[in-house]
Design a binder for these strands. Structure first.
Lengths: 208, 208
DNA sequence: ACCTGAACACCGTTCAAGT
DNA sequence: ACCTGAACACCGTTCAAGT
């Protein structure tokens, strides 16, 4: 019995490391979303006290940054495109795909203000392509912002769409009665998937 | 002394009403942001117990919805434009301006999934203009989504920009060394205001 | 009818203490 | 060195009780 106990304590000790904590945190956030990611939950998943985490992680912010760093290194770089506009499209699509598989990224990027430097190789290619298209720094940051902001908004809207629809079904059926143009659109809107990111992205890139 | 006490209790009673609560909540959120809006804070600002609010407001969600309804009715409708594309631009700009003066709107719209029906007159004009431009329901919802998603992303990025920059100044100066195109852009980026919403909006509307 | 205090089940984090 | 329990200052909300 004593040996069994010491075994489990040994395992418990081995479990607690920065990377183990990051893995556990990623698992939580991917299963149950960012709100479910609490220090206490991570700790209990690792069968440790909540305070044990703080030896390997400065605070919740640092935990999120670590998660971003890890995810950023896992993003597969797209093939280099000969057409510069196509190169830009591919890069933004890569980022957008990352937002789709890890929706919490957008939240952290925007609201925690943390970004990983591991994403720089991707951005370097983006800015290089813009440069070849004749954009100076000002124009580059302007177009970059436009594309990224659209990706932010689209991702957030997409990831909250189901919840929003659920709530909106409570709206009175006759709410749109006085608004004919709206009514006509709304009939389609409820079931609309509007997953038109790539098509709209190409529209935007074409304006560069 | 007794009369003084009864006076204050009378005033305290008069203070507590749905609209008084909404006003207090709006004042908080405009001064200190959405995170500062707690039921306890609203109550204490009204010199009431936290539980007293629940007589006039179902829960925090209902409070937010009430705030949105109030703000939505205060949005000034833009002048009708003879050019349909210009009409669309004006309407989206109106929405964007509302997002700028009440940044919390975007957060509530997206993450709480609550929207006010009081905004329908504005949307009716938007969909009507799109219809006149030859858009069916599908195309309308597609373009509408693109424009609104961009407005979402731009607003969120704008309102969190200062905080993000503050954090990013901690980054090592030589982080961009290996990335020449990025370095060149970044020199401009730190001070860049990229408040190019209207110009980009026009670009987008032109593609309709 | 209107208001409320105590209580419940949470949260991140500090701090002093264990091994 | 690594881990932890108790504690602090929060949160939204339930519930039973006050007036």
């Amino acid at each position: 019995m004593t040996s069994k106990l010491s075994k489990t304590t040994k395992r418990a000790r081995a479990k607690l490391s920065r990377s183990a904590i990051l893995d556990a945190a990623l698992a939580i956030v991917r299963q149950d979303g960012l709100d479910a990611l609490t220090m206490r939950r991570v700790a209990s998943d690792l069968e440790a006290g909540p305070m044990s985490l703080y030896r390997h992680v400065k605070d919740r912010d640092d935990l999120l940054l670590g998660m971003m760093d890890h995810v950023a290194t896992c993003i597969p770089l797209p093939k280099q495109q000969s057409d510069d506009r196509e190169e830009i499209v591919e890069i933004i699509l890569t980022i957008h795909t990352a937002f789709r598989s890890d929706p919490w990224l957008v939240h952290v990027l925007l609201f925690e203000g943390r970004g990983s430097l591991n994403v720089l190789p991707l951005f370097e290619r983006l800015y290089a392509a813009m440069g070849r298209l004749g954009c100076g720094p000002a124009k580059s940051i302007d177009y970059y912002s436009m594309l990224l902001h659209y990706a932010y908004g689209e991702s957030l809207s997409f990831q909250t769409r189901d919840k929003r629809r659920e709530i909106q079904t409570e709206w009175a059926e006759d709410a749109f009665e006085a608004y004919p143009a709206t009514s006509k659109v709304m009939e389609v809107a409820w079931s609309w998937k509007y997953d038109e990111f790539e098509r709209n992205l190409r529209r935007l890139v074409a304006t560069i």
